[in-house]
Write a protein that binds this DNA or RNA. Sequence first.
DNA 1: CATTGGCACTCGCTGGAGCGGAGTGCCAGA
DNA 2: TCTGGCACTCCGCTCCAGCGAGTGCCAATG
Lengths: 341, 341
Amino acid sequence: MQEDRRLAVLRAIVEDYVATEEPVGSKALVERHHLNVSPATIRNDMAALEEEGYLAQPHTSAGRVPTDKGYRLFVDRLSTVKPTSSAERRAIATFLDGAVDLDDVVHRSVRVLAQLTRQVAVVQYPSLSHSTVRHVEIVALTPTRLLLVLILSSGRVEQRLIELEGELAEADLAALRSRVNLAATGEVIAEAAAALNALINPEPGSPAPSAVTVSVVDTLVDAMSDHRSDERVVVGGTANLARFGDNFDTSVRPLLEALEEQVVLLKLLGEATGSGAVTVRIGAEGPYQELASTSVVATGYGPDDALASLGIVGPTRMDYPGSMAAVRAVARYMSRILDEN
Amino acid sequence: MQEDRRLAVLRAIVEDYVATEEPVGSKALVERHHLNVSPATIRNDMAALEEEGYLAQPHTSAGRVPTDKGYRLFVDRLSTVKPTSSAERRAIATFLDGAVDLDDVVHRSVRVLAQLTRQVAVVQYPSLSHSTVRHVEIVALTPTRLLLVLILSSGRVEQRLIELEGELAEADLAALRSRVNLAATGEVIAEAAAALNALINPEPGSPAPSAVTVSVVDTLVDAMSDHRSDERVVVGGTANLARFGDNFDTSVRPLLEALEEQVVLLKLLGEATGSGAVTVRIGAEGPYQELASTSVVATGYGPDDALASLGIVGPTRMDYPGSMAAVRAVARYMSRILDEN
DNA sequence: CATTGGCACTCGCTGGAGCGGAGTGCCAGA
DNA sequence: TCTGGCACTCCGCTCCAGCGAGTGCCAATG
């Protein structure tokens, strides 16, 4: 009974603090939320919560502020799952439906996510490794120059140019094209690469592959295992950092630096990929001390949520339910668009 | 004679103010620079310069600060052209030489520029409109599905898929391919588009073009006139905003907002394209009042500096000679790389 | 035993006073 | 035309007092 009220108090404090950005005191609390008890009672509860590490005081005789542990409890047990408002849905739909290609989808998603949450938004490009091969095209630009085009299910298109030693007959080209497509089309990248490699490492006894085949396959496999493009991330809504309030140096600066470091960003997002739910990292829970005053709300998208991740980064003092709802909604919509495509 | 000294005083004030970020007084000035006159003399000069609008006082009895007009004079007439240091050259070279494709070149350029100037760097993607067509490829993925690949001199590759009403014979495809390449290859985008259009709008009397030809040409022309990709910009070094010092709201916030608005960015950079020299916009000289406390140093790159622009954005109180040197150096190096390519 | 009202206490914030110092403008003299 | 001297301005800092929000503790109550 008292335990229930304590949790209610914690929830109320988190909500008020997020809204007002000011330490919240016992009196204000009983007024804003209609808890049918006196401020003194609340004070006892608050003292207990502080004892357990869920609350902290900036200084003696100020109101209470949630600790990271407090936010964690709030996120895990107290926040009511906010359904996405229909206005939000419409915003996402109208924003994303106009997208013309993959680049566009990603950029629009960042924008809409930043706008909805009023935080910094981050979207990772669909990773190569979970895409399947839709088609491979081999084109002779000149008799000694081939253009390889690799079309993936995520909408990504990779192309490579190769120079040949000798000329290649059109008939051989057609044969090579069909063999390659037979091996790769429809397969997940990793398996496609393996199947292609099998073409140039035949069982003993079969005829050795031609030099052209070797170089084409090598180039394709190289393109498939080129994880550089896996690392692409798009950031948006940095202007929202302006509302970060005080302590520019301790909060905003390290965050700006992190946003420039794609590696860090990917690591922050990475935890969320494929988890099937919205992941929340609060304050110093991650390995980056500099980001102790920021939280990350992220989730995967695409089939099985495993294609790549997207999310937002903001102060620990953020609207978690709202952010989580927005992140999830955008991720779902993106998955759907990529799927239809 | 006095006129010369006055300009020397202005130059000294700009340099000191940029270095110290504090209003500079007459006494400090004679000490740091070995002007062989007394502080009182300097004060007279400063009063005159203020009268003419080159200097301002934050308040009575504080040191002087350059006005936008003062910076303008400094940039136009007083700054000695700083040759790029060999260390800088090496940094640029090692940074950019590792680039593997166009995306990579652009991203690396942003980073190196941000690093050299310690400001926010902005690089625009090579514009379609100044590229020439290197090659057009038409591939039948299936008998009724064509893949069009448009390869441009800037390294950009655009591809489009089209569905045909009926099937297309291989021989017809080859003929179409060679006609299209004959018309477009080597031409600047605009002329290539015109030449292609001529193919489907023949003089009266000639045979009417086939439906396939029409749809291929239409798609190619569409891809060529798709200026969406002209508008791509990459921003880097936002972490340098942290050194902006005070007045977060009046300086950093509008700048962050501007950086999110590609349109604004492009306009800022746009003035510089093709001018053949480094352009400097100081404070409120542009149309954006919100950016009154920021300056833009930009230049074009590519052949005739007309391909696209790059530059930096920073506080009006910035190291103009150094920034200009860095911007020019990076632009030259980029031009060279794109040219070799 | 949880809850409540009362009460003394803590401590940050605000605003005004006072002071030091950097810098200026002006003037008379070289 | 330049220079030294001098009075003046005004910003920024510190100190101090008063205020108020908020707390912790305690004794009383159902």
